[in-house]
Design a protein around this nucleic acid. Sequence first.
DNA 1: AAAGTCCTTTAAAACGTTTGAACTTTCACT
DNA 2: AGTGAAAGTTCAAACGTTTTAAAGGACTTT
Lengths: 350, 350
Amino acid sequence: MSIPRSKNVTIKEIAAHCDVSPSTVSLVLNNSPKIKASTRERVMKMVDKLDYQPNQMARSLVSRRSKCLSVTVPNLTHVFSDVYFGEIISGIYQEANLSGYKILLDIAQEKFIGDKEYLNILRNRRADGMVYIASTIEDRFLLEFEEQPYPLLLVNHYFPKSQLNFLSVDYKKAAQLAASHLLELGHRRIGLIIGTNTFTGLDFRDTFLEVCEGQGIEKKDLPWCGVKDWDEQEGYEMTKKMLARHPDLTAIMAGNDRMAIGAIRYLSNMNLRVPEDVSVMGMDDIPSARYTNPGLSTLHMDFFRLGELSCRHLLNLLEGKERECRELKEPHLVLRESTGPAKPDLQSSF
Amino acid sequence: MSIPRSKNVTIKEIAAHCDVSPSTVSLVLNNSPKIKASTRERVMKMVDKLDYQPNQMARSLVSRRSKCLSVTVPNLTHVFSDVYFGEIISGIYQEANLSGYKILLDIAQEKFIGDKEYLNILRNRRADGMVYIASTIEDRFLLEFEEQPYPLLLVNHYFPKSQLNFLSVDYKKAAQLAASHLLELGHRRIGLIIGTNTFTGLDFRDTFLEVCEGQGIEKKDLPWCGVKDWDEQEGYEMTKKMLARHPDLTAIMAGNDRMAIGAIRYLSNMNLRVPEDVSVMGMDDIPSARYTNPGLSTLHMDFFRLGELSCRHLLNLLEGKERECRELKEPHLVLRESTGPAKPDLQSSF
DNA sequence: AAAGTCCTTTAAAACGTTTGAACTTTCACT
DNA sequence: AGTGAAAGTTCAAACGTTTTAAAGGACTTT
């Protein structure tokens, strides 16, 4: 079992059987146009007959390409159970697969960072490039890549002022869409729950508050609180905390759907109706957003597609087809039942 | 950006700087005891100084080991969002990491099967071994591995009568535990919802029914229905279907927690109380099982640990430390609030 | 008939390691 | 001083490809 003793068929054997040189076989296998059709055919027949499989290590050694892409995710508990990461990874896999690339999985644990594996994996050619999903403002080690010749692409995050490549949803745009929607519904006191450990999260917060203030809402009516794990639990807790201090909020804006779900759960536990008493808005449009009760109004972001695109861009970068990638994808509103007109304001003067 | 032009430091350069031969450097790097301490030190110093990184491709070429493990998952939508797969993968990653192995991700899509990539990935040495998570009875292509010299380990599934290695939860034992629990609570009409596309699922069903019938329950009071996707949706639908036909069921046994959650959702929609009117039992003990309302009685299976163990076994297999692996892990009962005494039976004669 | 051109094929040198066998040095023991 | 074993080091041949420059043939062109 341990190591297969049966020697594998090599290019040389194919060559011998076909009375050609190994070089010819290699050229055939690489679809070189230099080879005569009849020769090609003869070789291919033998390849099939002997069930030849190219040895990837040998190939990589000389071509200096492993044909692997590293996909790195943050070290969160249950990171692989999060539909957000799941969708992006699936998309990356799909696109990589089309180009014959394999996906090498990595988790940015202490050892990964401490031992500089993020660099070494590229240096010793285990992977030709890396896509890093949802880094945080703490992942400053990534800035090293500004001086390293290895292709790196950040997905759904970026570092302001850095030269690092990224592909992300446009969270400023998202904030505008969400804020406008809530304002149009007449909301004037809105609580915001958002992760503050990413630059994209900070962008969302700042833009959201700006837009609201631009419409004359006062700062004191825009409480917000920062979270770290972006999960249902935090949505629940933060909603509780905010309502305790600001019982007159008419809307909650959550930084993602999971937190929005937590918010809704708290509200219904408190016998507050959504959206009649409080509107709740999410972000991401994960599959379960349509199965919540009430259905969740949110911002749609196609993470599978984002994964596909990010992989495509990374491949372009490492094939030299692109020099840099700093792209934003637009989200769009998906309105379901969890947002509605603000409750008439009893304290107001009209 | 595309290909780093700066030649990497090689073993030869280290050798030259240290006035030793490349072989010596290699031996040092591989911790050979043959090398004098002073030489080792001198070499290591230079390795640090020049920031040398071994070229993995060259290593693999001669050692015939890629130091990669393939992890293959079935082609389900959102497979990476399922905590079940997520936990197993995390466990595998953890253990592989300790031994310096990387994880190569694969999804058993049509192309993967049609092009025999499951074999080729091992033949052309992209991976040294494969762990296949949760295969189904349809994945018969795996039987090819009975005649192939490559290490394969099935996780949480197996093929009866085959020689394939596996590591799985003991679903027969699980069925015994679950059935006994429900019988002890006095349930005499139990509906079973379970996936019938895996041999482990079939084992569960058969054992569950056997145990119940062994306690004198009639077949007609043990309706069951088979599912394919094992998700909340199916749990919901099947509960609906079964209750329509057997309105007097006092308990629902679901093949996993996700389906149990679906079942509970349907029951509360119908204003049936859990467990007063109908008990619901799940299987897996996923994190959210403790947050359902009521808390879910279920069977605990440590999937992270299962992942770790399966990786360990696979590594043992390919290092020749084990010749075969056909192991079952025992689940154990976790009783929360979703199961309770059966409703007194009005139609019964005592 | 020599020279030039085009089309195919090939020889040979990489790529950067590992590893068994051979070689050299050291050192204990006669 | 000579012998032999033990310890440490090196040689050289792999591993299985890709790739560049060159060779070989067939065919035109002068």
